[in-house]
């Protein structure tokens, strides 16, 4: 296990992906608009009609911050599984890149940064919608953005770890069933985790989404508290570990 030896050249990998993305960014906006708006309408307005208040807020206000992180998660995970796998295995883009001054480390770090950027892009769209609907009441919600970046780096590297073992697109289904879906639905986006039995809460708390949802919900209420430090430290360490692991596993796969 070696520390990633990436350089600033990783930005060029990011730039390549951005150039391609720019060609269909309008489509991407539509896609990522649609998804969270469904959640907000179905759960927030539909289901929310039966719930008068949730921890002192309307149900829509309750789920809003979590929707940002949940949708960003899906974006990042798709980009660093389907997207990265296509570039690596089908199009041999990584192979072409490493015949230039770029190293494999640069390529993988570039992919992680890119995955995180996609997440940030999606989050920004949903954030704007929620802001427009008047569901935020505290300026502290601006701190959601650095949190989304942290989330993006963490999930991009976890996804690349999975991709480093993939032999075809089927693996994304396993990843979805075993990680993405539990992380999404057990994160407490839609109701407080205290409803779950203890063992399920235990699982929920090690999944990366749970602390993000908790912290962002507090931020949207204008709360900044010391208890946030623990989960934040955990997320940062988790992200560093997964990044190191992703780079090493990808090197093992790609260097022959």
């Amino acid at each position: 296990m070696a520390w990633p030896a990436a350089s600033f050249l990783a930005i060029r990998v990011w730039k390549r992906n951005f150039t391609v993305f720019r060609k269909h960014w309008i489509g991407a906006i539509l896609v990522y608009f649609a998804d969270p708006i469904f959640y907000l309408i179905i759960f927030g307005i539909g289901l929310g009609g039966y719930i008068s208040s949730m921890e002192g807020e309307s149900y829509l206000e309750f789920i809003a911050p979590g929707i940002i992180f949940g949708t960003a998660m899906i974006t990042v995970c798709m980009e660093c599984t389907y997207g990265s796998f296509t570039r690596m295995e089908i199009q041999k883009t990584f192979e072409a890149m490493i015949a230039t001054p770029l190293s494999i480390d640069d390529v993988i770090i570039g992919e992680i940064l890119w995955g995180a950027s996609r997440g940030l892009f999606t989050a920004t769209i949903i954030f704007s919608v929620i802001l427009f609907l008047g569901l935020f009441h505290s300026p502290w919600v601006i701190l959601i953005f650095p949190l989304v970046v942290l989330e993006g780096i963490l999930l991009a590297s976890i996804s690349l770890v999975v991709t480093s073992f993939a032999s075809n697109y089927e693996y994304v289904n396993y990843y979805y069933a075993l990680f993405i879906a539990p992380a999404f639905y057990l994160s407490g986006i839609f109701f407080p985790l205290e409803r779950f039995p203890a063992w399920l809460q235990g699982i929920a708390y090690v999944l990366p989404m749970t602390p993000l949802v908790r912290i962002s919900r507090a931020l949207s209420k204008g709360v900044i508290a010391q208890w946030m430090l623990g989960p934040l430290t955990w997320l940062i360490l988790f992200a560093i570990a997964c990044t190191v692991l992703a780079v090493n596993l990808m090197k093992r796969r790609l260097i022959k």
Binding site: K92, E95, A96
Partner: peptide, 8 residues
């Protein structure tokens, strides 16, 4: 082996 960038 050809490895041109199909997205470009």
């Amino acid at each position: 082996d050809n490895n041109l960038d199909d997205d470009l």
